[in-house]
Design a protein around this nucleic acid. Structure first.
Lengths: 207, 207, 207, 207
DNA sequence: CATGAATGAGAATTCATTCAT
DNA sequence: AATGAATGAATTCTCATTCAT
């Protein structure tokens, strides 16, 4: 057992290196997924694509699913960043304009690497233990809640947690569908907006 | 290949052997999917579960995906049947009531074997050549169109093909989400109804 | 595949109908072999091709190899018939002319269904227990011997059994090669003739 | 089997370890083929025989056929080496003696592992895209050409490419036959020599 | 830490053959 | 005799993961 010395001095550059390696792995995984699909997505391919060894992949990810989850997290981070920006940018804007901004944020996040993200969404289903809320999901809810709070007076219905969840579900479905159908951003956001606004402002369903 | 002494009793082959075998295979596949998930879903397991040989599976399905697709078709048939009934039953009813019926039809179809159907939906994504409309999808659209046509006057917006697609996307998303969250039928249909009605009757989005 | 199997025909096609069925099976097998190669040659395919059931194939042939052997025998019969004719036709002709006739007979027999016959030859190798002389082979030898006997005086070397075997080996190799290279009959027979004549009339090798 | 496959080597053995493994695999394959025949030749058997895992076989050979082809190449290399030596050794010798040397070279190459080599020859037929000249085949032709060139004056006929091909075909057939009949080297080479010399020096066939 | 060779359980698919009808 | 559904052992090939170097 080697004595531990110079821990900090030595560790720092190594951590830097590790960080890079992780980035390399993630990007390699993303590319494999994009170019060969779930079909051709395997750890050996990822390693090769990243110009590293399989062993290194397992150094940073305990297994393949963990790698995929990291990719999903990366996507969620990017999505959240855009949504955060949208919420900030919508300050002072009308409800419709605000909703439009947030929808566009989602559309953009998904469109960036549409093929990849579609696959990741599929995998998310499989990898996330049934009803476990990712922290990303809950932050997203908070952001949407914050945005809606600004327009409390215009919205008749009670905007509780369930309603926010529904709104997210709806816009996500519309966005997914738009990308699958390869709609223009304009058309996609118009239709999504209608759906979202309808939910919020439409008639109070009452059987 | 050495002939093996078959000691076990042979099955009683009734008439329509083939038809039965296909049914047995499908049901076995469904059960494997339900109980072991995509993970444990393989043709050998299906055969074993069905009490038949793998060979028989391949006698009727050229490969595993074909089997899965047959399962998907079976589900779609069941869904369509329910929706058809709902559309018929909604004759003379109000728009809201009609929408409610169609949503409940979907909810019921999905709820019947929720776990199985969720998996099938995931697989559908993978198995259907991107954006290829199944005939089931197009019949569903027609049914929804027919239902809406009855209420033309109440609906301000233009109900074209895109709108119908959106409605289906929305209700499907709401239904999926409801099942995933294990909501009650009442809650689920209320929320889905709001979404659908909102889309149809809500404010005309205009930026 | 098991090491040992019954290989002879299972049942003598005594009746007219049986005879026809056997012919159908053989022709179906030939066609499958021609069109899909050894790769796609299987008893189910043969049955389908022949418009009969697999069971019927097994009624007349104890196993797949027996079927293949029957095909080989059919080819050998055709070859022998042609060679017999050639030997008859060569009566009174010169040695060179006689050899030419017999070579052409072989060429024709092989050319008729070149693809099929090539495959059969490959299989013959695998199916014939090492050094088992088929009766066809021995009749062929007799025919060649008879032909050569007429020209005893022109041939210096001793024409024993071995020599005849060599001649057959040589001409067969030349014929196979010609067909593989897709040579014209003229070129093929010229070159084969040279080989055969050389063996018979060439210098007495003496180290 | 699928129509198209990769047939070239999958990975170049870079390290010492790899090199050894490849050798182990080849030798294991050879032994399986020798002892169990084509019948019992499968990748699992090869791996087991080599004391390694199937995975390792596939690490170096993309599929079974590629492995077989490597075995064929190994045999051809050995054959060529012997023939090269024979051509060198025959410098200054008479035509007859030279031909004898080259025939013996072939005989020896084939005799070394007769059973194995016979099988490989059969497989070669199946695996080589019709009429594709291996580089080994063309080197063999060059060697024979070189040997004959030394005796131009003794040979009356025109020794073109076709003639050389014929000579190779003839000697190969004689050698195969000799091994199949288990002839002594002396007898085998005497008969092959007669065939080859006859072709070269025999009467100019003229119909 | 990195490497990459090795592992081996597992999964898909085939097809010769059987046998109840 | 004919049929053809059913059988299931066998085989090919993959890929997540490990571990010696």
């Amino acid at each position: 057992m080697p004595a531990k010395r110079r821990i900090k001095a030595r560790k720092q550059p190594l951590q830097q290196r590790s960080r890079e390696t992780v980035a390399v792995i993630l990007e390699a995984a993303a590319r494999v997924l994009e170019q060969r699909g779930l079909e051709g997505y395997n750890t050996n391919a990822v390693a090769e694509r990243g110009g590293i060894s399989v062993g290194s992949v397992y150094q940073y990810f305990p297994n393949k699913d963990a790698l995929t989850l990291a990719l999903i997290a990366r996507f969620e981070d990017a999505l959240l960043a855009k949504v955060r920006d949208a919420v900030t940018a919508s300050e002072g804007k009308s409800l419709t304009a605000s909703l439009n901004l947030i929808i566009r944020a989602q559309l953009e996040a998904h469109a960036e690497r549409a093929g990849l993200n579609r696959i990741l969404e599929t995998e998310e289903d499989r990898l996330r233990p049934a009803s476990s809320d990712s922290s990303a999901a809950s932050e997203l809810k908070q952001l949407v809640a914050a945005l809606l709070a600004r327009h409390r007076r215009e919205i008749v219905m009670t905007v509780d947690d369930d309603a926010i969840e529904d709104l997210i579900v709806i816009s996500r479905a519309m966005v997914d569908h738009a990308l699958q159908k390869d709609l223009s951003q304009a058309a996609a956001s118009r239709r999504a907006l209608r759906a979202v606004e309808g939910y919020l402002l439409g008639p109070q369903a009452d059987l």
